[in-house]
Computed example of a mutant assay.
Amino acid sequence: MNDLPPDLPRLRTVEMYLELQLQRVRKAIADQERHTQAKPAAPETWVLQHIPSTKDRPINWLHRASCHLAKGARLDRKEALLALAEPGVQACDACHADQELKSSASA
């Protein structure tokens, strides 16, 4: 089954229509790419979660804010680095909050 018209004038019309549609799509793609590139990256934040422990010391977990386990006070980069240096604070095993902090601190 052929959905295209059989004569040349109508085929040219379809061709022109498709070219115009393609131009619109390409312009929309370019606009979206410019919009995406123009947005500054959101600053990374971390979360310090306090968990009462049955041992002598409480446990505090440092999470990335995007971690699904994160519950607690939000920290910026400097606060997160200070917290991670404290005894009793551990990086989350799920989101590995310490990896980005350590790599950016050594840079």
Score class of each variant (00 low, 15 high):
81 L>D: 02
78 K>D: 10
49 Q>R: 01
62 L>D: 00
100 E>F: 12
11 L>K: 13
96 H>D: 04
4 L>H: 09
83 A>D: 01
2 N>P: 09
54 T>N: 08
51 I>D: 03
65 A>Y: 00
82 L>D: 14
33 E>S: 08
104 S>L: 10
24 R>K: 13
35 H>D: 09
20 L>P: 02
85 A>Q: 08
54 T>P: 01
81 L>F: 05
8 L>N: 04
98 D>M: 06
96 H>N: 09
77 R>G: 01
20 L>F: 08
90 Q>C: 07
106 S>W: 03
29 I>R: 10
31 D>Q: 07
102 K>P: 00
7 D>M: 11
25 V>A: 14
45 T>Q: 10
13 T>A: 14
5 P>C: 03
25 V>C: 07
89 V>Y: 02
13 T>N: 05
33 E>G: 02
66 S>C: 08
68 H>N: 03
8 L>P: 03
45 T>R: 11
107 A>K: 09
33 E>P: 02
47 V>A: 00
23 Q>N: 06
104 S>V: 12
1 M>G: 13
14 V>Q: 03
91 A>E: 10
32 Q>P: 02
4 L>P: 01
19 E>Y: 12
94 A>V: 14
55 K>V: 07
73 A>T: 15
22 L>Y: 14
12 R>G: 04
2 N>H: 11
8 L>G: 07
97 A>F: 09
50 H>N: 10
55 K>Y: 13
99 Q>E: 15
73 A>R: 15
49 Q>F: 00
17 Y>L: 12
12 R>Q: 13
37 Q>M: 09
11 L>V: 10
76 D>L: 01
18 L>N: 10
95 C>H: 00
84 L>I: 15
77 R>N: 03
67 C>D: 02
51 I>F: 03
64 R>Q: 13
93 D>S: 15
45 T>A: 07
23 Q>L: 14
4 L>Q: 06
83 A>P: 00
30 A>D: 04
49 Q>N: 03
25 V>P: 14
40 P>Q: 05
42 A>N: 03
48 L>T: 01
49 Q>P: 01
78 K>G: 04
68 H>E: 07
47 V>P: 01
38 A>N: 06
69 L>S: 07
